[in-house]
Simulated assay, not measured.
Amino acid sequence: MMKLNRAPTVALVAAILAGCDAMPVKRGDNPDFIAASASAPIPQQYNNGAIFQAAQSRGLFEDYKARQVGDLLNVLLVEKTDASKTAKTSVTKESGAEADYSQSDLSNAGGLFSIAMSANRDFAGEGDSEQSNSLEGSISVMVADVLPNGNLVIQGEKWLGLNQGKEYVRLRGIVRPVDITAENTVLSTQVGDVQIYYGGTGAVADSNAMGWIMRFFVSALMPF
């Protein structure tokens, strides 16, 4: 009887499941969060001999707030969410039936036939879920685009190298110029269509990640 070698099969399954792991996050691997570079300015002509020089001019009422592609903007992260959900279900059903039948035959022998049925069903279910998240800090991003209505599309990422790994914050969204303060800052709660990602890489992040075997047993592929 020919025996099958299970080692290649096990190795193949392990390789497939390992390939399902998310690729490690790296700086600049997502174009949606890469810092945008400013376009080259148009060379200005010098008025030789004149007091006013266009290359050194600045508007009398112009400030230093972000308004053009490539300008920096400081976003203050003040995210905090609290969610709670409770569900209770109770179902009760009762039913019953009873029948009596009596008769006498020719020998005057009496007989009695009785039927009694009852059913009772009871179901109770209860669920409770709570979630709380908080993110505070700041991140400097760049203006990637200026929309026709004047709103600014901002994007950027911030990386911190710590012991045994790195932590990162990524942000992308749309800002109204009117929401930018005189200090060139804006709250993250005022950023529209915002995408904020916070995570880490390295030994500490890997120790908190579930292995591929355990992910298989808790996935929808596990029939039990």
Rank of each mutant, 00 (worst) to 15 (best):
C20R: 14
S90L: 02
L17C: 06
L4N: 10
A205I: 05
W159L: 04
L60W: 08
T181R: 08
D179S: 12
A11H: 14
V169Y: 03
I115L: 14
F33M: 03
T189G: 12
A119W: 05
G202Y: 00
S114G: 06
D145Q: 10
P41V: 01
N48P: 08
S57A: 15
A109F: 13
A36S: 09
G192V: 02
E62P: 04
K93S: 13
E157Y: 01
A54N: 08
E62N: 05
D179W: 11
V78C: 07
I42K: 11
Q131V: 13
A182I: 07
R170P: 01
G110C: 04
Q44T: 08
K85M: 11
N108A: 08
K80S: 11
D100Y: 01
E130L: 11
S132G: 03
A220D: 13
L106T: 07
V25H: 09
N163S: 12
Y168L: 01
D82Q: 15
V78K: 13
A209V: 12
S134C: 06
Q155T: 05
Q190E: 12
Q44R: 07
I174P: 02
Q53D: 15
V143L: 03
D105L: 13
Q190K: 07
S104Q: 12
N48Y: 14
G59C: 04
A22E: 08
G200L: 01
V191C: 04
P31E: 15
F61Y: 14
T201I: 02
P41I: 02
R67N: 09
I51L: 06
R27D: 06
L187V: 04
S104K: 14
E167N: 09
Y101L: 10
V191D: 11
D145C: 03
S188P: 01
V10W: 13
V25M: 11
S188G: 07
V178Y: 10
Q44P: 01
P148H: 02
A14Y: 15
N149I: 00
G125Y: 04
L77F: 14
G28R: 08
P177I: 02
G49V: 00
E79F: 08
I51P: 00
G127F: 11
K65F: 02
A36W: 09
V169D: 02
V178R: 12
D100K: 10
A182L: 09
V169C: 00
E183N: 14
P223H: 10
V146D: 01
V10A: 15
A50P: 00
S219N: 10
I139G: 00
V146W: 01
Y198V: 14
N30K: 09
P24S: 11
A11Q: 15
R6H: 06
S207T: 14
G19E: 13
Q164C: 08
K93V: 07
Y197D: 07
